[in-house]
Design a protein around this nucleic acid. Structure first.
Lengths: 196, 196
DNA sequence: TCATTTATGGAACGACCGATACAAAAATGG
DNA sequence: CCATTTTTGTATCGGTCGTTCCATAAATGA
């Protein structure tokens, strides 16, 4: 049983580098040249290891989603209350105004906006990733209700959609270069809507 | 003083057709072939009349913005109250869920998301167009305060940013294929935040 | 009608796109 | 050390991109 020459790169790091490129430039605008340069491998290796550009994007989006959701999940679990988690998340994001981080936005919302209802696999995966964010907000809302910070009679599904809408809008504001004053005020109003 | 051969197309209609293409496909993804076909003119005429793709986009975005703002302005002026205008606008938009119209989104938010902080002219114009939307919401909020539907001590600037954020988020939800139930519920919560 | 001016159609440009083909290089297990 | 397997670098593919150029068509004012 011969094994042959082993690959000289880390598939993990390569996929991570690809994710960064798609995040910064978008799916269509990210050229294979950009990807090759960032991933530091040759064309052959890219197509051999990841199939094609679309599949590479799917893998990058999957990684981004799992990383993001995982991080938020841990942060939610570690938070003293679900409400402080939500407040912290939104306020922190609003505080990114003007930074390079703000200009990049979120790969999931970026993809949802760019790919829209194209119907292909990337578009469907973007949609599912949006749903994953809403599901996370749903869990946070349910916990906040259990903790008495949100009235129990309020519909957690509706509130989760409201929060996803708010985060998507906040990301758009940040991408368009809104200043911190505006984003912070808008986020406070959004959070008021949680408690009301 | 000779004049020469007059152009055989309507610059107005051509620019309008270009706007539709940029709206449906985005700035980068809209190819000159797409544009020529929709505008029904030859390459020479396009470059003669509009300069290049970037300038054509700027003109298309300008038209979209003025048309949109003008339409909203008239609708606001005709509305029995600023609050009913805002309610109608958001509820109507939420009701577009699932339609082709929803998949197209709004050229201004689309452009803001696609072009981000690229720094070039299209990016700057997208940012300014966002500001124009916020300015319109600001006027509506001020009027709603005068009419007693929003408490006078509330900051109209903050509320305007809140509404722009909400509309941007709503547009992202609609583009990602959210169902009408979710968008309608989210919008009601958003509107609750206006009155509170 | 005629000289002039302008628009038009289409060919062509260089650059880049995503993807493939193929030969050379490299590391394996035996 | 060798035969085998796999990766790697590079050349190249057909196609499309935005743009320019030029010959031709068309409508003008005189």
């Amino acid at each position: 049983m011969t094994r042959g020459r082993p690959i000289a790169f880390s598939p993990d790091e390569a996929a991570s580098a690809a994710m960064q490129v798609f995040w910064a430039r978008g799916y269509d605008s990210a050229s294979t040249r950009d990807l090759l340069e960032a991933m530091r491998l040759s064309r052959s290796s890219l197509y051999q290891a990841f199939g094609n550009k679309e599949q590479l994007f799917l893998e990058a989006l999957r990684r981004y989603r799992e990383s993001l959701i995982g991080r938020l999940e841990r942060r939610l679990a570690a938070a003293p209350s679900a409400m402080t988690f939500l407040e912290g998340l939104f306020r922190e994001t609003a505080g990114e105004a003007g930074s390079e981080r703000a200009a990049m936005g979120c790969l999931i919302f970026n993809s949802a906006s760019e790919l829209g209802q194209r119907g292909d696999a990337p578009s469907q995966h973007a949609h599912r990733s949006m749903a994953a964010i809403t599901a996370l907000f749903h869990r946070a809302v349910v916990r906040a209700q259990a903790e008495g910070d949100i009235a129990p009679e309020r519909d957690p599904g509706a509130l989760a959609g409201y929060l996803t809408m708010g985060m998507a809008g906040l990301r758009t504001l940040l991408k368009s270069g809104a200043d911190g004053e505006q984003t912070r005020q808008a986020v406070e109003l959004l959070l008021d809507g949680l408690r009301r």
